[in-house]
Design a protein around this nucleic acid. Structure first.
Lengths: 329, 329
DNA sequence: AATAGATTTGACAGCGCTGTCATTTGTGAT
DNA sequence: ATCACAAATGACAGCGCTGTCAAATCTATT
């Protein structure tokens, strides 16, 4: 670069990284050359030489809806404040792509990996285990965490949510879901468990369209229920997007919520409280999970390695709002 | 690495990058060692040596709502198919952070940069101009594009959208917006222009709460209008999130849409068509912009450098759905 | 004026790969 | 068997930085 600023490369490096260590004149000459050439240091070289990447990797299943928004926001806040760049990769709900993402991130020598979920390909697990960097698995509770694990029991949440609907007097309770990821499957199993326990007249009814979750899909799913003439007394939706879509479709076709049907969502996304009717849902503390995960990573990286695998159950909370009510049929 | 597979480093490199060029036995020995050590090649070294990063940078203002979802999806689809890794960075609607993001991406030697918007700090512009890589500015139309520019006139869209409401017979037309980014400001100016042109009885009414856009914020904004006793005949919302929130709040407090108030959104997000009432909005062809941008970048990178700055106006389209109607007051 | 110590700058080597080209090995034709 | 050619493997150097330590310069003290 601007050796044309008539200084040695190493001084340029210093001027850019710790300006205080360089005399004002040199600094100024270097700055001028840097600006003139629009010079940007090659991070690959820097990383190679210093063997520090100053970055952390985040793997989320989707960037296409709002589910991980608060989670990402928390991660960004904590990591940026701690001087780490955040690399976000999208696995598109595929374990194969997740493995690819892990390779990419490890290849970049990120200093920690925050990953949604606890189910990975054997190879992914192997790579993460051997990587020697902090690995934070989030959102679910693992039987056998790789390292640190912060989440909640999706199955238990599914069970309790279903029980909540049962306690309202509903019997015909449906479950709707888009593409089924592992957490959805866990909630579904919780749902089935609660239904089974409640008695033989509680028949599970699952409706699924394997598409990426959205409000629009929620509407579509409700239409599908109507077409099959299977309108339940209550609907447990795999996430608030679907619930919101279902509510709107109900409104459109004249099904009253919650009088004719109770609708329960999941995650307590930003719009749940301000919807009309406001959406009953299971809060999964998205922001808190992100915050704790990032803090755990920063903590590990700052030397206070506990080296004991830590697991935090952040729990969940059912918010009974207007979209659910006692069965009146 | 596994020189313990008893081969030279270069052969490992080859075995991993073009397996066909290596004999089956060696390949197998190498694979075994790779797996055993959970070896992942250091991308920094690879990039440095090959001076290819095989990645492209994408800068979006936010990852926290659904506005850029379709855009990102399109970018991912095209780039992944063309063998590029996509690095997504979030500028959080700050030009300062955007500049930082540009530095980071250029430091990584991404092979192209796709960026939302055409307004950047002078330094950002300088860096991009000098970078010698394809730069695609999107969503807006620039007077002076850095390189390639794919978007639409936000001001014109704002003007036409307002005119659409005027043509429905509305006079008291409000504009609501969260934190005002540059595109919002352009739409706002289009709104003001249309109102001014329509005559003196068309007084602009702008309500703004400088927070990140969300459905919840739309509700809050509507409450604010009500509190100030300023409920207009029509509301032009800076994006569909706000419109959706406004609709729901209206419903909650008994304002009928569109009988009492017409509500118009912007962007035609996934839920607009399935909302109830379905949301009238201005489609900005989010997916198409992303697709064209990515294709333009791939095109440039495959050698067919046009080297003439290209600008594409993808236009926009007003979808009149149920949330707007003729003024009946 | 001499000296210790602090401050500023630079030389050197090496981070872990890959491009290039040379060398070795294998194959088929004569 | 011999040779020309193709295929497989390796040696070498260097990508652009930075860690380490040495050299040069400056500052303050006696």
């Amino acid at each position: 670069m601007a050796k044309l600023a008539k200084v040695s490369p190493i001084t340029v490096s210093r001027a850019l990284r710790k300006p205080d260590a360089v005399s004002p004149e040199l600094r100024q000459r270097i700055d001028a050359a840097v600006h003139k050439l629009a010079y940007v240091p090659n991070l690959a070289a820097s990383r190679l030489a210093s063997s520090r990447s100053h970055s952390v990797g985040v793997i989320v299943p989707t960037l296409y809806n709002v589910i991980f928004a608060e989670y990402l926001r928390a991660l960004h806040e904590v990591f940026l404040n701690s001087g780490f760049q955040v690399v976000v990769v999208n696995s598109r709900y595929s374990q194969r792509e997740e493995e690819q993402a892990i390779r990419t991130l490890l290849g970049q020598r990120v200093e920690a990996i925050i990953i949604v979920g606890v189910d990975h390909t054997p190879m992914s697990r192997h790579l993460l285990t051997q990587s020697k960097i902090p690995v934070i698995e989030t959102f679910e509770l693992a039987d056998n965490p790789i390292h640190i694990n912060i989440g909640l029991s999706q199955a238990k949440a599914g069970r309790d949510a279903t029980q909540f609907l049962i306690d309202l007097g509903h019997r015909k309770i449906g479950f709707v879901v888009g593409q089924q990821d592992i957490r959805a499957a866990a909630r579904l199993s919780g749902y089935k468990e609660a239904m089974e326990k409640a008695g033989p007249e509680y028949q599970p009814m699952v409706t699924s369209i394997p598409q990426h979750s959205s409000i629009a899909l929620g509407s579509t799913l409700l239409v599908s229920l109507v077409n099959h003439n299977e309108i339940p007394e209550a609907l447990f939706c795999n996430d608030d997007n679907l619930a919101m879509g279902a509510i709107m479709k109900c409104r459109e076709i004249g099904i009253k919520v919650p009088q004719d049907i109770s609708i329960l969502g999941f995650h307590d996304l930003e719009f749940a409280a301000s919807a009309s009717p406001s959406l009953s849902t299971v809060s999964t503390r998205l922001y808190e999970i992100g915050k704790l995960a990032a803090e755990a990573a920063v903590n590990e990286l700052s030397g206070k390695r506990l080296d004991v695998s830590t697991q935090i159950d952040v729990g969940y909370e059912i918010f009974a709002r207007q979209s659910t009510g006692k069965n009146k049929r």
